[in-house]
Design a protein around this nucleic acid. Sequence first.
DNA 1: TCAATAAGTTACTTTATGTAACCAAGTATA
DNA 2: TATACTTGGTTACATAAAGTAACTTATTGA
Lengths: 107, 107
Amino acid sequence: MMKETDICPRFEKAISILSQRWTALLIHQLLTGQKRFGSIKTSVGISGKVLSERLKEMEKQGIIKRKVIPETPVIIEYSLTEKGISLEPVLREVEKWSQEWISADET
Amino acid sequence: MMKETDICPRFEKAISILSQRWTALLIHQLLTGQKRFGSIKTSVGISGKVLSERLKEMEKQGIIKRKVIPETPVIIEYSLTEKGISLEPVLREVEKWSQEWISADET
DNA sequence: TCAATAAGTTACTTTATGTAACCAAGTATA
DNA sequence: TATACTTGGTTACATAAAGTAACTTATTGA
């Protein structure tokens, strides 16, 4: 049988990035400014292991950048790249949708 | 330590729905009209097992509806509810972003 | 010397997803 | 009459992803 609707590969890739667990939430946090590992971990509630994995993936995808500050102990600042910042409209639409369609008792 | 940015529970719930694997792609498919189980399965490339799980979850979340047509063999039509349709702007933004930021060689 | 800190990593457990075979009911085919 | 085909699933089993908690490295202050 043939596929009746061919999905655009760019769109499919975008969805695969954004529907990776935690990724959208991490971008959302970084939209408020650069953040450190421990701060992200605490505010998002993700495990160190998966956070570390995600940050590496997102860096490879060009969505975030990692800045090492050689203090003691070392400080690492994570921030969005231009590509990452450009996801803001997507998250804004999710936010709008959630305000309109998610009721208090289903949170 | 305190959370420095509290995440809105509605937004968090919306993200948890949309970042569930396959869900966004299923909504995208259904935005082109009602579809049957087998047709979704083929066009999206999802396993029958997980498709069945997702459709049940999405029905419970009020995003899709299920219509039984007692022909032989039985036909089941899946379509978006108003709540589901209202996710179109979200997916449109993802589509726009993907056109601008996903290069051909990373697909 | 001991404790503390930041950013991870490691070993191990639990959960989610993929695969392929199977099922029921009805119908057309041989 | 028996067999095969169809749809929309389900089941058992295998693999991949995520969660948990303890541990690591380097440095500094008590």
